[in-house]
Write a protein that binds this DNA or RNA. Structure first.
Length: 235
DNA sequence: CGCGTTTGACCTGCGC
DNA sequence: GCGCAGGTCAAACGCG
């Protein structure tokens, strides 16, 4: 762990982890997310997660998404790392998230090896690497992943998901679940699994980009809070 | 009855 | 070519 701003550390995987102080306290934190032009590339807005009670109750949060994150208890603004689908940085993070490769197993020198081995899963082989192999690959949607400490597997991110599969992944105790957005024309998918090293941590990987707004039916009618306005601004 | 979950079968791509 | 592993499909089932 590399210490950064107060309450925020970058772990070995390069994720920004936001810790409550002390970590035992269950009281929710609130965050201000500064919108980034890159946010719209992703399947959901991290802000919505932070506004969600389930998510906010997590004592530790790690993100690999767009934008900048600022804790309300301090004025410091934490720049989050933004990954594009074909970038090596994204690749390494996506692979680690979705394929359970631990930080110990991973280093930059074996980047290509890891990519090639699991490109079908992550589909984030760099263009040059793909040309090298002269293999035609299906173009995948932008993906990113994050992890949260949570008792529940599926966090409410404002969208409606339908589970379409579950798979036991090799060398892990916990199955990986596959979800698809229930919206007809929407092809966004997400995978949910628990970290092998720490089952308290939930890894969520989003693939694709929603072509619609969140379907939080009743809430939209009953709540006219400024936070929801801000959320819709970000979507 | 409609919608969501479960789960075994099947498909696909990679490494050997 | 074969085996393995991840990803998806779809029928069966459960629940409100």
């Amino acid at each position: 762990m590399l210490p950064s701003a107060a309450g925020v550390v970058f772990n070995q995987l390069g994720f920004a982890e936001v810790h409550e102080a002390p970590a035992m306290e269950p009281s929710p934190m609130s965050f201000t997310l500064h919108p980034s032009p890159l946010l719209h590339h992703f399947a959901f807005s991290p802000l919505a997660l932070f506004q969600n009670p389930t998510f906010a109750a997590s004592s530790a949060v790690a993100l690999a998404g767009g934008g900048r994150l600022a804790s309300s208890s301090s004025s410091s603004v934490l720049p989050l790392r933004v990954f594009e689908a074909d970038s090596p940085a994204y690749t390494s993070h996506a692979n680690q998230c979705s394929d359970g490769i631990s930080a110990n197993e991973y280093n930059t020198s074996n980047n290509i090896t890891v990519n090639q081995k699991s490109h079908r899963v992550s589909s984030s082989l760099s263009v040059s690497a793909m040309r090298m192999k002269k293999v035609k690959r299906k173009v995948r949607e932008p993906r990113f992943c994050f992890k949260t400490m949570s008792e529940v597997d599926v966090l409410d991110d404002g969208y409606k998901w339908r589970k379409y599969g579950q798979k036991v992944v090799k060398n892990t105790q916990h199955p990986r679940s596959y979800y698809r957005c229930t919206q007809d024309s929407c092809r966004v998918k997400k995978r949910v699994e628990r970290l092998a090293e720490d089952p308290r941590m939930v890894i969520t990987t989003y693939e694709g980009r929603h072509a619609h707004s969140p379907s939080r039916d009743e809430d939209e009618h009953t709540q006219a809070s400024s936070s929801s306005k801000l959320a819709s601004f970000l979507w």
